[in-house]
Amino acid sequence: MCLGIPALVIGLEGEEALVDVAGARRKVSTALVEGIEEGDYVIVHAGFIIQKIDADRAAETIRMIRELGRRP
């Protein structure tokens, strides 16, 4: 039920977004998240976008992981 995979918003029409999830295209609702734009990466659950993915925060986490690997 709970997909951990990010989806890319490739189209918008009214309260619907067309998303690409690992190559599969699907129409989902934008009713639960404001300000969705084309090009956003989002989390989809049960046919609804439930959150946008924050690129800066993702980069921070990756940086943290890499630093852990490098510490003497």
């Binding site: 995979i5 890319l8 690992a22 990466y41 992981i65 890499r66 852990l68 690997g69 510490r71």
Partner: peptide
Amino acid sequence: MRYIDEFRDSAQVKGILDEI
């Protein structure tokens, strides 16, 4: 794919495991 590949990068696994 973005937000997947970088979080599956096996090169980083050892670093975290060493820290643990």
